[in-house]
């Protein structure tokens, strides 16, 4: 099962749980899985079927370049982080 790291600010929806294990082969599936366990989380992570502006996803230690379609392994970690640009 993928390990989803729950951002501190939405842990109110996961009873304070920092990591939630969810089944899924893509980030989108994982978010759906998370939503079914902890309703309301999808709403906080996505808008109009897309990741919310200002966020990015990291799968394990890499930025997910295919967004919600990014595929994940059974033991992957999924992180939701502030987006970064650069100078």
């Amino acid at each position: 099962m993928a390990r989803v790291f729950i951002p501190a600010q939405i842990r109110d929806l996961t009873d304070g749980q920092e990591v939630v294990e969810v089944n899924g082969t893509t980030v989108r599936e994982v978010i759906e899985g998370l939503e079914s366990i902890h309703p309301g989380t999808r709403e906080r992570l996505c808008r109009d079927g897309q990741l919310r502006p200002g966020l990015m996803i990291a799968v394990d230690s890499s930025v997910a370049s295919s967004g919600l379609r990014t595929s994940i392994n059974r033991d992957s970690e999924v992180h939701f982080l502030p987006a970064i640009g650069g100078g």
Partner: peptide, 13 residues
């Protein structure tokens, strides 16, 4: 170093 978990979550490669 490699393997350390960052405060924002991911682990360093």
């Amino acid at each position: 170093k490699e393997g350390v978990r960052r405060v924002d979550g991911p682990v360093y490669s």
